[in-house]
């Protein structure tokens, strides 16, 4: 399998990949604005507990730490997969993609558990403005991660069946941008939502 360094494509094709990378970067910037506004809304509404559960009542430091660890690790394992891709090592790419998927899936499982637990205790998004904004902010991030997981599966399939071709490599790198971006959003989430909520 060819490493990225050894690939040869027409100049036109190379330009197309640069355009796609720039376009995807712009999409991430628009997504950053969406999250920024969700954060702003959260800050505006964090005190609107309507006599219901407050952040301290519903957040758990240990669970937030576990979720953080899984996501952070998954960013690193994706990076290892990217290095393997650049070196043309197909089996390693598949292995590290799979590990990344498991870590990401673990994050989602923990988060679903967190939400389910909160809802069971009555801390539903319908309970108050604070909870509506919490579930929407963290839930939107979780939705993005879930879409990322589907993308990882699709990528796995493409690497498996098409090999490490230039189009596959280009899509892979865009997935990387997406995945690392989501980790950055998570850093802001625990810094703005969980940690201040538990102070």
């Amino acid at each position: 399998m060819s490493s990225i360094a050894a690939m040869t494509v027409s100049p036109r094709e190379a330009e197309r990949y640069e355009e796609k990378e720039f376009g995807f970067w712009l999409y991430l910037m628009s997504d950053a604005v969406i999250f920024a506004l969700l954060f702003a809304t959260y800050l505006i509404m964090v005190g609107n507990t309507a006599g219901g559960p407050t952040p301290k009542d519903v957040f758990s430091l240990e669970r937030a730490a576990a979720e953080t660890a899984l996501l952070l690790l998954s960013s690193t394992t994706f990076g290892i997969a990217a290095v393997s891709l650049s070196a043309g090592e197909r089996m390693k790419v598949l292995l590290w993609l799979a590990i990344t998927f498991l870590l990401g899936a673990g994050f989602i499982v923990l988060e679903i558990g967190e939400f389910a637990g909160m809802i069971a205790e009555g801390a539903r998004p319908q309970r108050s403005g604070f909870l509506s904004s919490f579930f929407t902010l963290v839930g939107t991030h979780g939705l993005h991660v879930s879409v990322g997981l589907i993308w990882i599966l699709v990528m796995f399939g493409q690497v498996l069946f098409k090999g490490l071709t230039a189009p596959v490599a280009s899509r892979f790198m865009r997935l990387g941008l997406f995945w690392h971006f989501l980790d950055i959003i998570w850093v802001v989430i625990f810094s703005v939502v969980y940690l201040p909520g538990l102070l």
Binding site: T41, M45, N48, A50, Q126, S128, G129, S132, F135, T136
Partner: peptide, 10 residues
Amino acid sequence: MHFFTNGMGG
């Protein structure tokens, strides 16, 4: 939900 409701923390 209660983002913009007239009560319940909207």
